[in-house]
């Protein structure tokens, strides 16, 4: 599906070229450089860089070359975190191919992730240095904030699962999704674009709400898709249930079910990953349907999309119609239509 396809393609190509230019700089180092380029060369939607570039264009478009470099930094940082995420989650596939640690082992993969993480600062610094101290300060502020929020979100998700935390609420889930998904995926790219495009004249907080609700809708829809027959992106159906991932549906069903059902659910969640049988997973799926947890999550996802549209109108509504504004607006629908 195309989200204002031509624009996404154009932005994606420019970002990818810049990423490869930075990764190709210098003599290749054994056991490292080919790994740095592995995930970026596999493609990817390039949605984050496109959000950055579109925001830069919408809020001033004063430094397009700088915005492209910032977009490259975003993509490199995203890929670095993917390498680490795959290790933390024990994932075997990424973009249809074996994960980096599956190919080269965990130590080398973590090392490559570290290197890519720091390499991302190359284009980011190159992007903002010519724009002056105030812009540098703002970019570093939002980047530090994003790093903190993302790490907190990841810690929440891993901690809940590993320590078998049960008494979670919807607010807990939303807090986790805000930090883990929305900040790095939607809020930060938009903030970078806004700061660079306006040369620091606009407040980067103005795009937080739209990114937050978009990210929430995205995360809930992502969790819902994992329960469908075709979860996409090479994941197994109900894989989140087998991993006891704390999703909105799981939190809902635990609250809505009977005491007897909750006792079995808690027993199931207390098992190790390999101890959870397919029958247990099927039972949990059925329980979620019976108690309306799936429908509730769909409704909440749609409501978050509504809230995102509301915030979009508040922030971008007054801007003149453009390809970039249409692209940002179409992201809400894309959350559900993406393939």
């Amino acid at each position: 599906m195309a989200v204002e396809g031509a624009l996404l393609q154009r932005y994606g190509a420019a970002t990818r070229a810049e990423v490869m230019r930075y990764l190709a700089a210098g003599a290749p180092s054994p056991f490292l450089d080919e790994m740095l380029a592995e995930y970026p060369s596999r493609g990817g939607k390039m949605l984050r860089p496109a959000i950055c570039l579109a925001n830069a264009a919408l809020f001033g478009n004063e430094a397009h070359a700088a915005a492209v470099r910032a977009a490259a930094a975003i993509e490199m940082l995203h890929n670095a975190l993917l390498i680490h995420d795959d290790v933390q989650d024990g994932s075997e596939l990424r973009r249809g191919k074996p994960t980096l640690h599956a190919l080269h082992g965990v130590p080398l993969a973590i090392n490559a992730g570290d290197a890519l993480l720091f390499a991302a600062f190359g284009p980011l610094i190159d992007a903002v240095c010519p724009l002056g101290g105030q812009v540098i300060r703002q970019v570093m502020d939002v980047t530090t904030m994003m790093a903190r929020q993302t790490a907190e979100g990841q810690a929440l998700e891993l901690g809940w699962r590993d320590r078998n935390v049960l008494d979670l609420t919807e607010a807990d889930y939303m807090r986790m999704a805000l930090k883990k998904t929305a900040w790095m995926g939607m809020i930060w790219p938009a903030q970078l674009g806004l700061i660079i495009g306006s040369r620091g004249r606009l407040d980067p907080e103005m795009v937080v709400r739209f990114g937050y609700f978009l990210g929430l809708a995205f995360q809930i829809e992502d969790d819902l898709r994992n329960l469908s027959e075709d979860p996409g992106y090479g994941k197994e159906q109900n894989g989140d249930l087998a991993e006891a991932k704390r999703t909105l549906m799981l939190i809902h069903v635990r609250e809505a079910c009977s005491a007897e059902e909750r006792a079995r659910l808690d027993w199931f969640l207390g098992l190790r990953r390999e101890e959870r049988s397919a029958d247990d997973v099927r039972w949990l799926t059925r329980l979620m349907h019976e108690h309306g947890s799936i429908a509730h999550a769909r409704a909440v996802a749609a409501a978050m999309a509504g809230a995102a549209e509301h915030e979009f109108a508040a922030v971008y509504g007054a801007l003149p119609p453009s390809e970039e504004r249409a692209f940002i607006g179409s992201l809400v629908r894309w959350v559900f239509d993406r393939t």
Binding site: S228, A256, R286, H289, A295
Partner: peptide, 22 residues
């Protein structure tokens, strides 16, 4: 938490229900 208030009950045992129109 249940959909009985104001919305029709969700069909049971339809794990692969298509995503709603956004």
């Amino acid at each position: 938490r249940k959909p009985s208030t104001g919305v029709p009950p969700e069909p049971v045992a339809e794990p692969a229900a298509p995503a709603p129109d956004p």
